[in-house]
Design a protein around this nucleic acid. Structure first.
Lengths: 197, 197
DNA sequence: TGCTAAGCGGAGACTGTCTCCGCTACTGTA
DNA sequence: TACAGTAGCGGAGACAGTCTCCGCTTAGCA
């Protein structure tokens, strides 16, 4: 299966490719360590390149985040395929999907907020990735709808916004990841025809 | 009715009080104009004071935001009293309350995110204001619960988090304020016993 | 009117973002 | 293998924002 990243880039010179990779790898570590607002110059320094090099490859912070999250979209897609094909009762299937989503979107501190903000901003470098999310969610919701378990008028986009909002709340306020569950439960109650099944 | 701000401060010298007021007034304008991330030095300059003066009165940005939102908590409290006493069907009463809440929390661009983050952070200067919000929301939900319209196990705190999450989504992504409604509708469906009434 | 401390404010240290441009060294060609 | 041309490097430094320190000013009191 082909990667979901799209956009072919013309081949870089060997040393440039090396730097590119080193920067992404370093950024991944720094983001994990200090959140998505880690200093870019610091990342460049740790990666052993000048700031100019970093900014040439990644004109904005979002662009770097996008690169760091390359495999991420594939993982989410896989999750959504699994959820859509699931034989579990609708509520369980959806609940699992939402939980995984919140978890995935919150990989780095501050990441959820960026994703949330980019969801409706076509100018953002992460927009395409968000579209993948929206598509994945649509797929899962459609599978639930096919079983007649979804209320009429529930729009996948709205659901996506709420869930990413919840992911942001969980990430920004100090509460634990477990605290997402009761909030997601409310959403489930709100979109399922018979919340008990 | 007494103000909700609490904490008596020892009287300032006349010139200090003048500066304090000027800063708050200027900040309010700047926040409205440029969002809650407006430059503090710039606010000081426009207010005609040195940065030192601003930082003495307001050691952190949150503290300034807190001062700017002084009347805000009173307004929200009034809204909640009205909603709690309302004769409207539960759904309408709640819906109105949520909408006003989202609107109030989103006064300045970026404010919703700050409120959301402070909601569970007792160290934040805005924490006390958030407690007021939580209390106000509790009051409204209790009134609905008294009418038997609320599902069992619905926790006011969770609801507050979701709604502030929605407020943040609306504020951060470029979507219009109207787009909050369908999201709030899902929450209403999720917490009311019989969503139709 | 003069004393005293509360309060002022601006110079400047510090951190982070981002650019410009002279230099380096990779790659394709002969 | 040597060379030319250019893709790419990287660091100095401009710029913006935060925040502090401390010598000076002035309000408030006796």
């Amino acid at each position: 299966m082909s990667t979901t990243t799209g956009v072919e880039r013309k081949p870089l010179r060997a040393d440039a490719q090396r730097n590119y990779d080193k920067i992404v790898e370093t950024a991944r570590a720094m983001f994990r360590e200090r959140g998505a607002d880690a200093s870019l110059d610091e990342i460049a320094k740790r990666a052993g390149v000048g700031p100019g090099t970093l900014y040439r490859h990644f004109p904005t912070r979002e662009a770097l985040i996008d690169a760091v999250m390359r495999d991420w979209a594939d993982r989410i897609n896989a999750d959504s395929d699994e959820a859509a094909a699931s034989e579990l009762p609708p509520r369980e299937a959806l609940s699992g999907w939402f939980s995984k989503f919140v978890e995935n979107v919150g990989i780095y501190h501050g990441a959820a907020a960026k994703v949330m903000a980019a969801m409706d901003d076509p100018a953002s470098p992460i927009y395409r990735k968000c579209q993948i999310l929206v598509g994945a969610n649509q797929k899962v919701l459609d599978s639930v709808r096919d079983k007649g378990a979804l209320r009429d008028g529930v729009d996948a986009r709205e659901v996506m916004r709420i869930v990413s909002g919840i992911a942001t709340v969980v990430d920004q306020s100090g509460i634990g990841a477990d605290d997402a569950e009761p909030m997601l439960a409310i959403v489930l109650d709100g979109i399922l025809v018979d919340p008990s099944d």
